[in-house]
Simulated scan of single mutants.
Amino acid sequence: MPRVEPLPRESLPQYEDTFRAVESALGVLPNSTLTMARRPAVMEAFARLNAVVMAEGGVDGVLKQLVAAVVSGAAGCAYCQAHTSHVAEQRGADAEKLAAVWEFETNPLFTAAERAALRVARGAGLTPNAVTDEDMAELQRHFDDEQVVEIVAVIANFGFLNRWNDTMATELERSPMRWATDNLQRHGWDAGKHTAGEPTSGR
């Protein structure tokens, strides 16, 4: 169960435009948004940043979601893994590719460019950060500087979300929970503290 309760959406009609924009992008209004709403300036600032970072630009939107899923998995955030994988599928990611995302180094479904991006994402999600000069040089062989900034912005964006949702023990909403249970659980994903009724003290 969450360590700080999200506010009811219906109690915040003045932020409905923000909620609709977030819901349109993700297919669901995350409980994390409704928890941030206890400090509306934080919620609105993050919603704007997230919209810019995750928008399709020089980097394909599906690849951004895969980067987000890998960095979240490396950081240990089951909540963000569920959300990012679910959104990746909604945006057209191949289900087989999503299921094999942790085999990106060897699986033929992944291109050399995707491998370079996901390698940096995996290293960046670890503590201490494990991204090497060689990893970045390989990334820069496939992406120009503007695209590298986009990719690292996704990683940094989820650094915030991973810590927010794991610290708050944000409860997963029904649709990403169902999707992750059906598609990620057999690959080792577990909702853990992000389920209703899960104890929140200790580890």
Rank of each mutant, 00 (worst) to 15 (best):
F104H: 11
A124R: 05
E173L: 09
A121H: 13
Q147T: 03
E105G: 15
R163E: 04
A78N: 09
R163P: 01
V149M: 12
I155T: 12
L109A: 15
N50E: 15
W179L: 09
T195F: 00
L66D: 04
H194A: 03
L49R: 13
C77V: 04
T18R: 12
G192Q: 05
A100K: 10
F19K: 06
I155G: 12
T132F: 01
V62W: 01
V70W: 00
R115Y: 00
V149C: 07
P6G: 01
Q65Y: 04
G27V: 05
P176T: 09
L98H: 04
E5T: 15
A25M: 13
K193L: 11
L98Q: 02
V154S: 10
V149H: 09
E150Q: 14
D17V: 08
A78R: 10
V148L: 01
A124T: 07
E89V: 10
L66C: 02
F46C: 10
V101F: 09
K64L: 13
A116I: 08
A130Q: 15
N183F: 15
H194M: 07
K193I: 14
L29T: 10
V149R: 14
V87M: 03
E103M: 05
Q65K: 13
R20K: 13
D182K: 14
R203L: 13
A41G: 03
L172Y: 07
V53S: 05
Q81T: 11
G76T: 06
